[in-house]
Design a protein around this nucleic acid. Structure first.
Lengths: 259, 259
DNA sequence: GCTTGACCCTGACGTAGCGTCAGCCCTTCA
DNA sequence: TGAAGGGCTGACGCTACGTCAGGGTCAAGC
């Protein structure tokens, strides 16, 4: 006869695991000897090896209980289910792995490659500091919920960097928010640029392209992000309102206020 | 500002998860409004998306805490570790999958294919019932601990089935143990056969091949298995002892007893 | 006969990452 | 004005055991 530790070692599990299987009724309690020790026969080894093999394959113990007494047909069906779960789990881990692999470089964990390329391009163009960070954070928020839509947008966003006015705008904003001062003339230049671009986009009917997204995409949140990052963003919003535009990420035509 | 459920939905996690992250200090508690509700800014979304992404990749929350405030170098090293763990886990699941896939057929979950082939061959030869089950259980016990050694043994075991005496022995044993009776003449035939085979193996120096295994392999356990399965096995042991052999799975020369 | 070390027993708490009440407060809309 | 739909804290539940704590048992050596 076998002691519990012998049994456990034959099946390659711990003593505690065996006791646990007893506790939940998965493995029947054997006879005790006169000192109350459990004494196992050889068949217990076979049962335990079966249990341990299934458990190692990730089958929940609650299912193993039914499984070991099931007929061939039920068993085969269960095996199918288990295999499906394993496949899904493997696929999930593979996805995680690619995420993590990309992450070594920089932002790629949280952002699709198209967005990373866009941010790299901005960096090349001299955009840096809080503006670049804010841009990244904004895209992180977007990409978390609408990764597909974000990827669709990126080609036109990237193309827009061919417009020297847009590049200039980003550069001016970088200058503005990279210091602690409030440079009114520079701000005015940025506002003028933004207003000009907004006007052009408005005339071209910019919103036809994104109309379906308007309900869902959290432009308010992106605006909040900007204001949170730097209070001077508030000043920019005011300047834009003087020029007849409301908002930050998405501008809307409004009656201009007096500066 | 955002409520907790809005925050959670932006990051694709549950409200409970967010509160949990607060509790363990992974995500800083935000300001409360006058009714005690948590109010979040946009940066919380970015932080939470980072946490959720790492957590989804299987990184323990305790590590995420350090990870999000780590510098680039530490981060890259950690990413390596995480990726390694993911690789191991995937490999483990793949192994489980192959086990489980083979399982649909029959015994293959618990036994290497060579043993399955051996058992199939026995079945073809008319071996069935308790003898076949016992044979299988015995190999399950062996394969659980010494899978490699078992696979090495199988070719010679399979070849041994070309010997008609061995086939006859298995068939006689099948007949013997498939009924409830105690068929003394048939038992004597089986014992004679076993003794003859044992003598031959002894002369050929059978133990040179397995000598290194003798210490480890639990022949006692296999004998116990047989005795447990059917008390008539005890009678077989006695008959063998009369013929000068002790044991069941592995026979040893002993002075013959009187029948 | 005594000690020592290796096992065995039960009972109970700890682990990770939340899910899920319970009991209560706050806000909003019909 | 009351019902729905949040939000709050606190606490227990879940999986599959690990890990004490506090005791009894067994085999071996002195």
């Amino acid at each position: 006869m076998l002691t519990i530790s012998q049994l456990a070692s034959y099946a390659g599990v711990t003593v505690r695991a065996v006791r646990h299987y007893h506790q939940i009724g998965l493995l029947p309690e054997p006879e005790r000897d006169r000192s109350g020790y459990r004494r196992y026969g050889a068949h217990a080894v076979v049962s335990l090896v079966k249990i341990a093999t299934l458990a190692d394959a990730g089958v929940p113990l609650s299912e193993i209980a039914d499984l070991v007494k099931a007929d061939q047909e039920t068993f085969a069906a269960a095996v199918q289910r288990i295999d499906g779960r394993l496949r899904d789990e493997i696929a999930r881990l593979e996805r995680s792995r690619t995420s993590i692999a990309e992450l070594a470089a920089g932002d790629a964990l949280l952002l699709p490659p198209e967005v990373v390329a866009y941010l790299d391009r901005l960096r090349e163009l001299g955009v840096a500091g809080p503006v670049l960070d804010g841009e990244r954070d904004g895209w992180i928020i977007m990409a978390a919920r609408w990764p597909d839509r974000v990827r669709e947008w990126m080609p036109s966003k990237l193309a827009s960097l061919d417009d020297p006015r847009i590049v200039r705008l980003y550069q001016v904003l970088s200058l503005l928010f990279d210091t602690r001062e409030l440079d009114e003339p520079l701000m005015a230049e940025a506002a003028d640029l933004m207003a000009e671009l907004a006007e052009q986009a408005y005339e071209a009917g910019y919103n036809t392209q994104e109309e379906s997204a308007e309900d869902e995409v959290p432009f308010d949140l992106l605006e909040l992000l900007a204001l949170e990052t730097d209070p001077r963003a508030q000043r920019m919003v005011e300047l834009m309102r003087e020029r007849g535009w409301d908002g930050w990420t998405r501008l809307e035509k409004v009656p201009p206020t007096k500066g």
